[in-house]
Design a protein around this nucleic acid. Structure first.
Lengths: 194, 194
DNA sequence: TGTACATCAGTGAACGCGCGTTCACTGATGTAC
DNA sequence: TGTACATCAGTGAACGCGCGTTCACTGATGTAC
C-alpha cells in the first residue's frame, strides 16, 4: 500500500478532531467539508474514503467531543479536595475561560439545540451518550438513588449549558460576566447539601 | 396606490410572525426566504420591499417572538393563585406541551446558541431584549435587590431553556419525560423560599 | 370631469455563490507468480 | 530475484442543487393639471 499501516486511522481521527472543534464553534451548517479537509492539507474528495457523508461525521464528532469534555471535567473534579468536587465542576463549567472557547468546550452547550432538529438515528446516539455522560457524574451529585443522581446530573449540565449559551450570546462583557457569576452561585447554592 | 392603507404593514407583520415560527422550528439556516413567502401566497422578490435582508428579518422575528413568549408566560403566571406564580412559570415552561412545540415556544431555548454566532449588532439587540425580559420576571423571583432578582430570572430562564433543549434532543419519549420532570422539581426546589 | 403621469407592492426570471457529493484518475507499495 | 498486476488513500474537475439577492416589469390606484 501507498501509506504506512495505521495511516488511514490516524487521518480519520484527525478529521474527527478538527470537525468536532469546527462544529462546536460554527454549528453543523457552518462547517464545509472542503474547508475542514484543507485545514488538514487534504482535498475534499478524500473525505468520502473515511465517511459516508457529513451527517456521519457530525454524529461521530459530536460523540467524540462529549467523551473528551467528560474526561476533562472529571479530571478537574478529581483535582479538587475531597468534598469539593461538585464545586469544581460548577466553577469550571461556568468559568470565563470555558465561555470564551466554545470550540474546545462542552458540546452539549454548543450543539444540543440543533441535535433536536436532526434525524432520529442521530438522536438515539445522543440518548446513549447522554446516559453515559450523566452516569459518570452521578457520583458527584447529592441525593437518593443512583438513577436520581444521574437525572440530576443531566439537569445540572443542561442548566449550566443554558447559562453558558446565554453568556456567549451576550454582546456586553459585563453582562456576560454577571450571567456566569449569578449562574455559579445559583447552582452552587441549589446543590449544596443544605 | 394599488393596495389599501395599512396593507404593507399588515404583510410585514405576517412575514415576521411566520418567520419567527419557522426560525424557532428549523433554526436560522433552515429557513428559506422563498418558502416563507410562498406560505403567505407571495413570491420571494417582494421580500426586499420589506426587509434589507435575511439578517434583518431574523433579528426582528427573534425580538417579536421574545415579546410574545413573555406575554404568554406572564399571562400564565398571573392566572395562578397568589404566591404560586413562580411555580406556574416553571411548570408551564417545562411542560410536555412547550417541549413539543418549539415553533410556538420560547425563542431563548430555540435560538440562543446560534445568536452567539451572529454579528455583534444582532447580539446587542439581544442584550436589550434579555434585559427587558428578565426585568419583567424579576418581580416573581425571590431574593434581594431588583437587580439581583433580574439576574436570577436570567439564570432561571437560561437553565430551563437548557433543560427544554435537552428534552427536545432526546429520541426516547420516556427520557424526555424524565428530564422535564426532574428539571421541574429541581427548579421548584431551588427557588422555593426555604 | 377627464387625461396623463407617478407611485410602489408584488412578480418571476436570472445571477452568483457555496457546498455536498461523485468519479475518473494518480502513483506508491504490496502481492502473485 | 524480477515482472506484471492489484490495491486504495488521496486528487481535483465536474455536477446538481438550494438559496440569497437583484432587477426589469406589471398594473391598480393616487395625483397633477
Amino acid at each position: 500500500m501507498r501509506y504506512p499501516a495505521g495511516h488511514k486511522d490516524r487521518v480519520r481521527e484527525q478529521i474527527v478532531r478538527a470537525a468536532s472543534r469546527r462544529f462546536r464553534r460554527r454549528g453543523g451548517e457552518g462547517v464545509a467539508i472542503a474547508d475542514l479537509m484543507r485545514d488538514l492539507k487534504l482535498t475534499h474528495g478524500g473525505f468520502y474514503r473515511h465517511f459516508r457523508g457529513k451527517e456521519e461525521l457530525f454524529t461521530e464528532a459530536f460523540l467524540a467531543s462529549v467523551d473528551q469534555a467528560r474526561q476533562r471535567m472529571i479530571t478537574a473534579a478529581d483535582a479538587a479536595p475531597p468534598g469539593r468536587q461538585l464545586e469544581a465542576i460548577i466553577t469550571t463549567y461556568l468559568s470565563a475561560g470555558h465561555c470564551a472557547k466554545p470550540d474546545e468546550g462542552c458540546p452539549l452547550a454548543a450543539l444540543t439545540t440543533e441535535i433536536a432538529r436532526h434525524p432520529k438515528g442521530t438522536r438515539a446516539a445522543f440518548d446513549r451518550i447522554l446516559h453515559t455522560h450523566a452516569a459518570a457524574f452521578a457520583r458527584y451529585m447529592p441525593g437518593g438513588t443512583s438513577a436520581e443522581r444521574e437525572r440530576l446530573a443531566m439537569v445540572l449540565f443542561a442548566g449550566m449549558a443554558g447559562a453558558l449559551n446565554l453568556a456567549r450570546a451576550a454582546a456586553d462583557d459585563e453582562l456576560r460576566r454577571a450571567i456566569l457569576e449569578q449562574a455559579r452561585s445559583f447552582y452552587l447554592d441549589a446543590l449544596s447539601p443544605a
